[in-house]
Amino acid sequence: MDTQSPYAKKISKRFRAKEKLIKYFFFLNGFVTVLLILLIFLFLLKESFAGYTDFNLSEYFFTEKTLADGSTEKIFEWFPTSEDQRLSIVPLILGTLLTAIPATIISTMLGVFVGIYLSEIAGSRLREILKPIIELFAGIPTVVLGFFMLVVGATYFQDVFFTTSRLNAILAAVGLSFIIIPIIATLTEEALRSIPLELRMASYSLGATKWQTISRVIIPTAVSGISAGIILGFGRAVGETMIVLMASGNAAELTLDVFRSVRTMTATIAAELGEVSAGSQHYFALFFIGTVLFIGTFLLNLIAELIINKMRKKIRF
């Protein structure tokens, strides 16, 4: 024993150092990630308010135009390169909502049912085949989906709905739902599967049928998990760029009609940031849009995360 102990000590010392090193390594990684996000956010904030000195923040929402009779009228228009510059992001926010909300509705209708089917009805072998296929949908490059909607979807839609605008909000929404259905379906399935078997058994033992069990026991228990999935899907729809850039038509109109062309916040940044001259008011306005998007999607993700955490606690009786 006596001869062994210094060696053992050496080993354990070495091990401890290694353990510590690994610990710091992982801490550093986590820290860098958080730091990066923080820095990105600070950069966005800095850039979006840098041009604030001789500029009224309200002009990011509306410009006031004096009419012939002396009264003023609020104008919500996005004309960043006009001589008489108008930088209202209101039509862009509307455009984002007009594509993201219909997309979320379509995806919820389909995604939740797919999730229920996968978790409760499909046999285990079928599920093993179906689940990866559905998840594969989320992996389609969005530019491919956008191109598909632009070339094939648009013509088909116009033939069916007789829309005047070939490219419109609802077309973009359908394109978006291709990537949001898998998100909602997967999260719904996970929420349902996290419900303990005892609940199902108890329901069956009281004489409930499968449908009754699903509709009255399982869905009410998992409702917060499902809604978290829907919120996450909505967040993705708000942040998605390529599909809306290609399929929405990009007309910055102040409209509530989903069959008209709209311009989203993401598409505006993508289309214009490459060519804008740095330091101009237009440039700052694009960063302001970025900040609004960042805060919006951050809040949506936060809410979804909180709901999921709350549900986990609730299920753990």
Binding site: A154, T155, Q158, M246, A251, S261, R263
Partner: peptide, 19 residues
């Protein structure tokens, strides 16, 4: 404001040829 904005001449030609 209702002018639809397309990315590049190719996409524009494609849209008008179908509309």
């Amino acid at each position: 404001t209702s002018t639809q904005v397309l990315q590049g001449t190719a996409a524009l030609g494609e849209a008008v040829s179908h509309d």
